[in-house]
Amino acid sequence: MTEARDTIDRNRRAFLGAAAGLAVAPGVLLHTVAGAAPRSAPVTSDVRWGLLIDTAKCADGCTACVTACDEENGLNLQVKPEGQSEAKWAQQRSVWIRKAKLQDNQTGRITNLPLMCQHCERPPCVDVCPTGASFKRADGIVMVDRHTCIGCRYCMMACPYKARSFIHEKVTAQLTRAPRGKGCVESCNLCVHRRDNGQESTACVDACAREGHQAILFGDLKDPASHISQMLTAIASRQIREDLALNTGVRYSNI
């Protein structure tokens, strides 16, 4: 069974292409996106999605990735509650990806980088979650099952990257691809809807490329032939908070 599943996964594209044809029910048109089809077999650990961020290419003052993430996941549809101050709203609104600008204390060298969920191999947020709502998918994506999240926020206490946000107010506008609502915790899920629909990259990667920076690379860390794996072999990269030995799926170069 597992073997069969593995084979299926390796040839997922081809398989899905064929399956999609079969799956089209009478009277239902398949809405295709860039030739990809929705996933029909469970995700497996044959792949591990990750990002490589070249901080040398990350431009000072550019927030294209942040804006793209907000739009992709409908974070921009959440509005400031009436009567809330701007300062407080800035601390309470959801942030899945943020820009940070660092200066080396010794040398004064400036580094710009985006920071989001680092998709740890051994995520502290998953360890601490009392209900198992915070979980790691087989393909390495760390995310929240909002159906079982009770909003205790212990994962936010445990995350070494402050990557998670709590939804502090009622959300009335959501995107179909990114359901989200009051009282649950959320964070970057590497555009999981795109993964499941067989799309190529993430919103932040696309936005960065559109700006001409190409500072973020998305791909399968387990596939030695993938661009990201080859880059990781060729150039030096680091993890944030390497001391915790979390084996993050997001790596940084030139940091």
Partner: peptide, 17 residues
């Protein structure tokens, strides 16, 4: 603040780093 970047000072951040 969390010790995300030892030896570095966060000059600007979109999230109070």
């Amino acid at each position: 603040p969390m010790p995300l970047f030892p030896g570095q000072t966060v000059v600007e951040s979109g999230f109070l780093d």
